[in-house]
Design a protein around this nucleic acid. Structure first.
Length: 546
RNA sequence: GGCGCGUUGGAGAAACGGUUAACUCACCAGCCUUUCACGCUGGCAUUCAUGGGUUCGAAUCCCAUACGCGUCACCA
């Protein structure tokens, strides 16, 4: 077989060689130890939490080592591509504060190792493919998808390993004349790797998460180029990560199974293999079992969900970091003031098994993050979210910034600040009673307070109310009302002898609280009353008496 | 079916052959308290999927078994 001739026949238009690309994409000039990583999302119109998960790993590895973090669009599957998907990826990553040093942008690319969209790299793959053909390591295959499917069925029936390999690789032994004939007839073809592998042999691959992996050699003649001349993932990965000079390939563990193919191509081309980081994917509890997060089944795990609910990007980061490196929480406790980028992230600390995604834990971290944020920043964040998702509330907030900040600061000061806010959406609900436009009674009055007693309490409260009082004076008056009406001053006393009292001071103050705020859960009632002002407080009290 | 990866409490997990199996979240109880929170204190795995072995000693090493997940496309 004249491989040179075959290569020329298959790729007449390709003039550049792999060596040409070596000089177009020279080794990077980076400090020692700097890592080059990338994420390679497919533009399918759905940005997934798993995408962010791997992005966080890649970003940390690159940026904490002074390296480069790349966005590459893996658009080799034209069938699944959705218009506008690149924009969605970009905006989601930007929202979560994931910054790329180079890669695809909306209007073109940024960086010297592009293009960063795989379909635009067709010639590069083909140049490498041509070389493989010249070396006799790749060959054209004219089998149709149907034929390959039937082969698999036959193998299944005979309990053989499925696939296109060895004696089953019909086109592997085609002569140059036969190939020429089929090409001349205009038959479509794919380019297959001519595997020299033997399942009896094994290869050792370095994985930064799992240590040294010993895997079976690949023996399948898998597809390098599809009939449209666009590579499969397996080939694109090798070519791109070589010419982009990626040092660490971060990807999900579902790629472990095809890893032997990838190392085989690296070796066939005499290229240095990257260090792999095969991550255990986030899982979801599904009834009795757990499974990988799936695009189709878990739409609520689209990144957009967290944006709509108003989770803070920082909270998501911190949550993902605790899942990735469980010592992160300890570090956070010891370094409450430091940004998370100071945390020494390590692949060795990563778990080999998939973690369940825990929304409750995320909420706890959100509270923590929001609690530590100064009121003015809370205001800015909340306003930004409202502008997008609750325009009416945005206007209320913007109408009086000082008031809003004051409200947000309530209960935040002191040694033990409250952790009332979880997400922006929840914050809008929580803060609604500070605004008449959103004020309403959410919680019921205490059970042992009938409407008549409610009026009695509020009546007396109104009579003694003096906005010049300080907190102590104010509460002293509430105590007097309690005594007059037969409520226990200490909840404990009431608990001990419920028959002696109508209820306790808890019931009385809650009645007032609900009249003023509509809630049984709020920061200090007197501070709230002062904030609302005399007029509004009185109006609400009066309204509650009807 | 083949191959691969995994299995410590409700969740995330620490432990890297050696006394009572860290820590965080959740849950429960108590304290604090005018509510709800916050905070504090305590409880929550006599046991590390199961069964064998190695060892003076195992969650930690070895071997089976079970279970779960992944993968076997001209999808990534």
């Amino acid at each position: 077989m004249d491989h040179q001739r075959l290569a020329q026949l298959l790729f007449p238009q390709i003039t550049k060689t792999p060596e040409d690309y070596e000089s177009i994409y020279p080794p990077r000039d980076l400090p020692a130890g700097a890592k080059v990583t990338r994420i390679g999302p497919s533009p399918t119109g759905f940005v997934h939490l798993g995408n962010l998960y791997n992005a966080v790993i890649g970003e940390r590895l690159a940026h904490q080592s002074g390296g480069v973090f790349i966005l590459r669009i893996e658009d080799t599957d034209a069938k699944r591509e959705v218009a506008g998907a690149v924009g969605m990826i970009l905006s989601a990553m930007d929202f979560f504060g994931v910054h790329f040093d180079e890669g695809a942008l909306l209007d073109g690319d940024c960086g010297a190792y592009g293009p960063y969209r795989q379909r635009q790299r067709a010639e590069i793959y083909q140049a490498v493919a041509k070389r493989l053909v010249e070396q006799g390591q790749a060959y054209p295959c004219f089998c149709t998808e149907d034929e390959v499917a039937r082969l698999r069925e036959r193998q299944q029936a005979e309990k053989l390993n499925f696939g296109y390999y060895g004696a089953y690789a019909a086109c592997r032994t085609l002569t140059l004349e036969q190939i020429e004939e089929k090409l001349a007839a205009g038959m479509p073809w794919v380019l297959r790797f001519r595997s020299q592998g033997d399942a009896e042999h094994s290869v050792t691959v370095l994985d930064a998460i799992r240590g040294e992996l010993v895997v079976q050699e690949n023996y399948q003649d898998f597809v390098l180029l599809k009939s449209d001349g666009i590579p499969t993932y397996h080939f694109a990965h090798v070519v791109d990560d070589h010419y982009m000079r990626t040092t660490h390939v971060v990807r999900g563990e579902e790629w472990l199974a095809t890893l032997p193919m990838h190392v085989q191509v690296f070796d066939a081309l005499g290229w240095q293999r990257p260090i792999y980081c095969h991550t255990a994917q986030l899982m979801k509890q599904d009834g009795e079992t757990r499974r990988k997060l799936s695009k189709r089944k878990d739409p609520e795990l689209a990144l957009d969900y967290y944006r709509q609910e108003g989770y803070l990007p920082q909270a998501i980061w911190e949550y993902l970091l605790t899942v990735l490196n469980s010592n992160y929480e300890q570090w956070r406790l010891e370094n409450p003031g430091l940004p998370f980028s100071e945390f020494p992230f390590s692949t060795e600390k990563m778990s080999h098994s998939g973690a369940l995604f825990d929304l409750v834990k995320l909420e706890d971290i959100s509270k923590e993050v929001l609690c530590a944020l100064p009121a003015s920043e809370v205001y800015d964040g909340l306003l930004a979210w409202c502008r997008e998702y609750d325009a009416e509330f945005a206007n209320l907030l913007a109408r009086d910034r000082a008031y809003a900040e004051h409200v947000l600061a309530l209960g935040k000061t002191g040694e033990r600040p409250r952790k009332d806010l979880v997400t922006w959406r929840q914050a809008v609900r929580f803060l609604s009673f500070y605004y008449d436009e959103r004020f309403q009674q959410d919680d019921p009055y205490p059970q042992n307070i009938d409407p008549q007693m409610r009026r009695e309490i509020l009546q007396r409260y109104l009579q003694t109310l003096d906005f010049a009082d300080d907190n102590e004076q104010w509460f002293g008056k509430v105590r007097v009302i309690c005594e007059e009406l037969g409520f226990a001053l200490q909840p404990k006393k009431y608990k001990k002898n419920p028959e002696l009292y109508r209820g306790s001071i808890v019931d009385v103050s809650n009645t007032i609280r609900i009249a003023v705020t509509g809630r049984s859960n709020s920061p200090d009632l007197w501070e709230i009353s002062q904030t609302l002002g005399k007029e509004r407080t009185l109006r609400r009290l009066l309204a509650a008496m009807d």
